[in-house]
Amino acid sequence: MIELEAINRNFEVGEETVHALRDINLNIDAGEYISIMGPSGSGKSTLLNILGLLDQPNSGIYRFNGKAINQLAEDEQAQVRRENIGFVFQFFHLIPRLSAADNVALPLTLAGVEPDIRQQKTAAAMDALGIAERAQHRPDQLSGGQRQRVAIARAMITEPQLILADEPTGNLDRSSGSDVIEALEALNQKGITLIMVTHDPELGGRAMRRLKMDDGKIIGDHQS
């Protein structure tokens, strides 16, 4: 599903150039469950942002379903994100003034989906994540674990092929963290490709494929 070929990403910081990614080559098949681990600053988030089309590599080719997409125009990339990719962030990124249900429905609202279809899908997604009774609560009325499950419901509502999660448990305690991981794994079980960055070796170890990064390079790729 995903092919990365010699991807480089540099940042100019003053006089210096920071090589966040160096010649990354990576193939990911549909339905895989991948964890990315590595020390801080090793380039995990940068890699995830490029996979999610939020960032562009300085060089290299990114193919998504066989199509080179880093040459696409901004609007076409937005369309790929909208239709194929879901994001889960460390800081949830829920819109504080919207209810949980409206937050979950937001990708459909932005895409112009009819309100009744929206409502139906939102209810189903929130039900699947066990937050149905919180639908009308605002984010500040929810616990961290509940917020992250709202965010996961939002990521899955468009039925994407790929879910990218950058330290989804980074802000949660152990028990709500494992709830969140179980929710993500359940999505993977249904065939959605899951790529997750984590600092927790125990959580990372649950993935079928474990990537290890250091200094912008993939230094380990273990399958089980």
Partner: peptide, 16 residues
């Protein structure tokens, strides 16, 4: 800003 970043991540094109 984070809301705007989110909108873009969720696939809203610039003009939207």
């Amino acid at each position: 800003t984070s809301e705007i970043g989110l909108l873009k991540a969720l696939g809203a094109p610039d003009f939207e």
